[in-house]
């Protein structure tokens, strides 16, 4: 995503709009996060209750880019149809593609995900696939035409952080040209720092902020985390050593009496 000129300056934090204690806290948290991209969804709603228009007006007023999702879809057909509906409703060809293969841990169905991705790219969508941290699947998604791939850190809403850093590191190393966003499982700002330090281009969070005791303060913490992690990646982290190496110069050490004294 950040490879495209118009997206170069977008925040590396993408944030969801669900689970906040109130709409006003959601708005404050989004502003504090400094995110430029918000995820939203589509659901059945009763027109007598406003039919989602109030929420949509609220989101539109924030002036952010919208990344609709296909949350809850379990088949290729459902996901493709939901994406088409989202394109009309939100007036964007961006879609966070979810094809869920397991109800218990909301793990993506890799086969359905790839199939739906190929179909949606044929229909000129910009597909942001939510995927497991499987290197080969991520590679196939990139080959299908995804410019951004979003492997999970751990199951959605679990807050367990980066359960398999090796897999994430390998995906980063093997797909240097693809924008990679860690989506799902981030629980604390240090998880975000770590993902960015590893060279991930961004993180997508929701529960980590919305379910914090103070969502607005936590949003601010995440804003700092992605900035810090990205700076660290660009700065280049020092290599690990097995033994201590003094940082204070040894020359002129006080009270030194020589090796044999």
């Amino acid at each position: 995503m950040w490879h495209e000129p118009e997206c170069r300056n977008l925040s590396r934090l993408l944030i969801g709009t669900a689970l906040y204690p109130s709409p006003d806290i959601m708005r404050q948290a989004i502003e504090a996060s400094r995110a430029d991209v918000l995820t939203v969804s589509l659901r059945r709603q009763n027109p007598a209750d406003g039919g989602g228009e109030q929420f949509w007006d609220y989101i539109k007023d924030l002036g952010k880019r919208i990344l609709p999702n296909t949350a809850g879809c379990k088949s290729v057909k459902e996901a493709v149809t939901t994406a088409q509906m989202a394109r009309e409703l939100f007036d964007t060809n961006w879609i966070k593609l979810e094809v869920i293969g397991d109800d218990y841990n909301l793990q993506p169905d890799p086969i359905g995900l790839l199939e739906a991705t190929e179909e949606l790219i044929r229909q000129d969508f910009e597909v942001f696939p939510y995927t497991t941290d499987d290197l080969v699947l991520c590679t196939r998604l990139a080959e299908a035409g995804c410019r951004t791939v979003m492997p999970w850190a751990s199951p959605i809403g679990s807050g367990q952080g980066l359960l398999n850093p090796f897999n994430l590191t390998m995906i980063r190393a093997r797909l240097p040209e693809v924008s990679l966003i860690v989506d799902a499982g981030i629980g604390r700002p240090s998880d975000a720092v770590r993902a960015l330090e590893m060279g991930y281009d961004g993180v997508l969070i929701n529960s980590a902020v919305a379910l914090a005791q103070d969502p607005v303060a936590m949003a601010r913490a995440f804003a700092g985390a992605v900035e810090s992690g990205r700076l660290a990646y660009e700065a280049g982290v020092m290599p690990k050593r097995d033994f201590a190496s003094p940082s204070t110069p040894t020359l002129g050490t006080p009270f030194w009496h020589g090796a044999n004294s």
Binding site: V40, R44, G52, F55, W56, P68, A71, L89, I156
Partner: peptide, 10 residues
């Protein structure tokens, strides 16, 4: 028929 509207999402 499915008639869907904007909703909060992650």
């Amino acid at each position: 028929l499915e008639v869907l509207s904007p909703m909060q999402g992650g």
